[in-house]
Design a protein around this nucleic acid. Structure first.
Length: 669
RNA sequence: UGGCCUAUGGUGUAACUGGCAACACAUUGGUUUUUGGUACCAAAGAGUCUAGGUUCGAUCCCUAGUGGGCCAACCA
C-alpha cells in the first residue's frame, strides 16, 4: 500500500468506472494509430504516453496500428521512423498492425451495409456533393442517387472495386441524414476510387476506405476497449458509433466488445509548431537539415538534440490530460531534460569562447594531471584526470578588468578558483592594438583550501582538442507561430536559431561516441551529434544550465524576445483594481488593511457611481469585495453622491453581515 | 445563423463526485556548494468567467449569459 493515491485524469476515471460496472480487466485494450505520412513529434508523444501509459498501468495490450488508407501520402519510410521513435521512447506494442490488413473485411461489411439499405453509390462530382452538403449552419440536401436500388448499388460498388470506373466517378456513401446538425452525419463517404500503389497492398485495391469507416471498424476488429484520440475527433464520435452499431449487429458473435472513443486535448508547445504539414514544409524548403534537425519538435529531432526518452516521458506525465485547449511552456520540457541529465551526465570542461590565461609563476615545461570527479550526483561515476599547464583558456565572459563585487569571476587583482585545480589571481592583461584583451596574466597558489567566491572551468591549451559546437535557439520567435490569421508561420522563423562555434575541450573527450551526453561544466548539456567523426567532433547543445547570473544582468542589447508583440498594456480601470484589492482584504493584517483602504480611497476618486452599482450585487460570500465597494462608495458619498434605494439596501445588507470588518465599515456611513 | 466541447494563480494539472483551493513549472528571496548548476527552505501569486438558482454549505449540481476551441478535404 505504499503507492500514493495519485489523482486520476478523466480518462482513468472513465476506465475505473467501466471496470466498476463490470468490464473485465483483461478486456482492456488500447491502440496508437498513426498515419504513416510524416514523422512523430512531441505532440504525438502525449497520445503515445496516454495509450501506452494506460497499457502499462493496467497491464493491458497496446496495438500499434498504422492507419494507412490513403496510399497517395503514405510511405514505408514513415512506418520505419515511427516504429523506431516509439521503441526509443521505451514503449512496447503488442501487435504491429495495419488498417490495410482489414480491407477485405471492411469491404464485406460494406456490401452488407448496402444490402441493408444503409449505403449507396453516388455518381456526382465532388463539387456537386460538396454543394449538397450544406454548411454548419445550413442543412444539406439529398443526392439524386440516394434512392438507387440495392441491386444497382451492389452492382456499381462491385464494379468500382473491379476497376471498371475512372477515379472520381463514383463513391460509396453511408445513408444517414443530410439534415443532421453534425455535418459528418450527412451521408459521409465510405469509399473512393483511387488508382494508387499502396505501400502494403500494392495494386490489389483501387477503392480505398475513408478514415471514419476504417478507423472505428479497425478498433472493433482489434477489440479495442478504449479508443483515445484528440479533441478534434469529438464530432466524429457520433459517426463512429453509428458505424459501430451496424457492424456490431453483423458480427457480435465473433467480436463482442464495441469500442468506445474518448477525446482529450492535444498538446501545444509555446514557440513551436506541431502540424506535420508545416514541419514537412520546413524540411522540403531546406530550412532545417531534415526531420531530425535538432531544432525540430520531432521525436527524432529531440533525440538528436540529446533529449532522453525518460525526460520526454516525465514531461508527458507532468503535462497531464484534460479537455481544454492548452499551451505548455517550453520551460517545462527544459526542466525535465535538465532534471534527468543532472543525475546521469558526466561533467567535463570545455571552453567555447576562449581567452588565454598565462600563469606566470607556473614552470613552462611542467604539466600535471589532476583528479576530477565525473558526477557528484552519482558516486558510481568515478573520477578522471585532467591536464593542467602554464597556459589555459577560460571563457571570455569570465573575466573583466574591473567589476563590482557581485561579479564572482576573475577580475584584475581578484582571485578565483579553477575547477579541479588551483586558485589564481589576475595581475595584468595584454592588449592588442585595438584594445582587445589577448592574454590575462595570473599567478597561482597551491593552497586550494581557502574560500573564494567564484569557480571557473578551464582547459589546458596545449592539451585541448577542438570540436564543432552547435548551439540552438528556438526555431520561431513567436509564442504561437501558426496562430496568426494573416501571417504565415514562416515569417516568424528565427534567423539565428543555429550558431556554430569552435570549442576547446579537455582531452578525455577525444574518443566519444555518437549520442553520448555530457555536462560541459557551467555551460549546459551537450551530446555528440550524428555528424561527429573521429577526425572532427561535433557536439549539440541540448539545453543550457539554469543561469541565475544571466538573469541579474541587464538584458542583452539585441534583445530578440522584445519582438513579442506585447500589447501596449492598457491602464486598468480603477474599479477593477479596487475589486482586486478587495478580494484579499479580509486576509490582511490590520496594518495592511489600513494601507489597502487608503489605496482604495485614492482609486475611488476615479470611479463613477455607474462603475460601482453593479458590484452591489456581489455575492454575500465575497465579503472582501463588498468591503472594498463600501469603502469606495463612502468616498463617492463624501464627494456629494446622492443616496438612493440601491445604496441604502447595499449598506443595510452590509450591516447585517457576519463579517465584523464589513459591519464596522457599514456602521459609520 | 446550427451543433459539439471547454472555462480554476503567469502556465499546466488536481480537489476523495457538495465541506472555503493542492501539486508541478515559471517568478522572487534565502541557506548549502570547488558548477552563479544541484539540493534545501521560504515568499508572492486563484474566493475557481459573469449573473441567478438548489443547499446549512457549490470549483463541483441546474438555468441563462459571456469568452475560447472544433465542425462544410474523394485527408487522417
Amino acid at each position: 500500500m505504499s503507492e500514493e493515491t495519485k489523482s486520476l485524469n478523466f480518462i482513468e476515471h472513465i476506465i475505473e468506472e467501466d471496470l466498476a460496472n463490470g468490464l473485465p480487466k483483461d478486456k482492456l485494450r488500447f491502440r496508437f494509430p498513426p498515419e504513416p505520412n510524416g514523422y512523430l513529434h512531441i505532440g504525438h508523444t502525449k497520445a503515445i504516453g496516454i495509450s501506452f501509459g494506460l497499457g502499462e498501468k493496467y497491464n493491458a495490450p497496446v496495438n500499434l496500428r498504422f492507419d494507412d488508407t490513403n496510399p497517395s501520402k503514405e510511405e514505408q519510410e514513415y512506418v520505419d521512423a515511427i516504429k523506431k521513435d516509439i521503441a526509443w521512447l521505451g514503449y512496447q506494442w503488442e501487435n504491429e498492425l495495419y488498417s490495410s490488413d482489414y480491407f477485405q473485411k471492411l469491404y464485406d461489411w460494406a456490401i452488407q451495409m448496402i444490402k441493408d439499405g444503409k449505403a449507396y453509390v453516388d455518381s456526382q462530382t465532388s463539387e456537386e456533393i460538396a454543394a449538397q452538403k450544406g454548411t454548419p449552419t445550413q442543412v444539406g440536401t439529398n443526392s439524386p442517387y440516394r434512392d438507387r436500388s440495392v441491386e444497382e448499388n451492389l452492382d456499381l460498388f462491385q464494379r468500382m472495386k473491379a476497376g471498371e470506373f475512372p477515379a472520381g466517378t463514383h463513391i460509396l456513401r453511408a445513408k444517414i441524414d443530410m439534415e443532421d446538425p453534425n455535418m459528418l452525419m450527412r451521408d459521409p463517404m465510405m469509399y473512393r476510387i483511387m488508382y494508387a500503389h499502396h505501400h502494403r497492398t500494392g495494386d490489389e485495391w483501387c477503392i480505398y476506405p475513408m478514415y471514419d469507416w476504417t478507423h472505428g471498424e479497425s478498433d472493433y476488429i482489434e477489440q479495442i476497449s478504449h479508443s483515445l484520440c484528440s479533441l478534434e475527433f469529438k464530432p466524429h464520435r457520433k459517426l463512429y458509433d453509428w458505424f459501430k452499431d451496424h457492424v456490431h449487429d453483423y458480427s457480435k458473435d465473433d467480436l463482442p466488445l464495441p469500442p468506445k472513443q474518448r477525446e482529450f486535448a492535444r498538446l501545444n508547445l509555446s514557440y513551436t509548431i506541431m502540424s506535420k504539414r508545416k514541419l514537412l514544409t520546413l524540411v522540403e524548403k531546406g530550412l532545417v537539415s531534415g526531420w531530425d534537425d535538432p531544432r525540430m519538435p520531432t521525436i527524432s529531432g529531440l533525440r538528436r538534440r540529446g533529449y532522453t526518452p525518460n525526460s520526454i516521458r516525465q514531461f508527458i506525465k507532468k503535462v497531464g490530460v484534460a479537455k481544454r485547449e492548452n499551451v505548455i511552456d517550453v520551460s517545462l520540457l527544459e526542466f525535465c531534460i535538465r532534471e534527468d541529465l543532472n543525475k546521469t551526465a558526466n561533467r567535463v570542461m570545455a571552453v567555447l569562447d576562449p581567452i588565454k590565461v598565462v600563469i606566470t609563476n607556473y614552470p613552462e615545461a611542467k604539466e600535471e594531471w589532476l583528479e576530477a570527479e565525473n558526477n557528484q550526483e552519482d558516486e558510481a561515476a568515478g573520477f578522471r584526470k585532467v591536464p593542467f599547464s602554464r597556459e589555459i583558456y577560460i571563457e571570455k565572459d569570465d573575466f573583466k578588468e574591473e567589476a563590482g563585487n557581485k561579479f564572482f569571476r576573475l577580475k584584475l587583482g581578484g582571485e578565483v578558483r579553477l575547477k579541479n585545480a588551483y586558485i589564481i589571481k589576475a595581475n595584468s592583461v595584454v592588449k592588442a592594438a585595438n584594445g582587445e584583451i589577448t592574454e590575462i596574466h595570473c599567478t597561482y597558489d597551491e593552497d586550494t583550501s581557502k574560500k573564494v567566491k567564484g569557480t571557473l572551468h578551464w582547459v589546458s591549451i596545449k592539451h585541448a582538442i577542438k570540436a564543432e559546437i552547435r548551439e540552438y535557439d528556438r526555431l520561431f520567435m513567436h509564442e504561437a507561430p501558426d496562430s496568426h490569421k494573416d501571417k504565415n508561420f514562416m515569417e516568424f522563423l528565427n534567423p539565428n536559431s543555429l550558431t556554430i562555434k569552435t570549442g576547446y575541450l579537455e582531452p578525455s573527450l577525444a574518443d566519444v561516441e555518437v549520442g553520448e551526453r555530457f555536462q560541459f561544466q557551467r555551460l549546459g548539456y551537450f551530446n555528440v551529434d550524428n555528424d561527429s567523426t573521429a577526425d572532427k567532433l561535433v557536439f549539440n547543445k541540448t539545453v543550457g544550465l539554469r543561469d541565475s547570473w544571466a538573469k541579474q544582468k541587464p538584458k542583452p542589447q539585441n534583445n530578440t524576445n522584445s519582438n513579442t508583440p506585447k500589447q501596449p498594456q492598457q491602464k486598468r480601470p480603477a474599479i477593477s483594481v479596487i475589486q482586486q484589492l478587495g478580494k484579499k482584504y479580509t486576509n490582511y493584517s490590520e496594518e495592511k488593511q489600513l494601507k489597502t483602504k487608503a489605496e482604495i480611497q485614492t482609486l475611488a476618486k476615479e470611479v463613477t457611481y455607474d462603475d460601482l452599482e453593479p458590484l452591489f450585487g456581489t455575492a454575500v460570500k465575497k465579503a472582501g469585495t463588498r468591503i472594498a465597494v463600501l469603502i469606495a462608495l463612502k468616498v463617492l458619498l463624501a464627494n456629494g453622491l446622492e443616496r438612493n434605494e440601491a445604496i441604502d439596501e447595499f449598506i443595510e445588507k452590509a450591516k447585517d453581515d457576519k463579517n465584523d470588518i464589513l459591519v464596522a465599515e457599514a456602521s459609520d456611513v
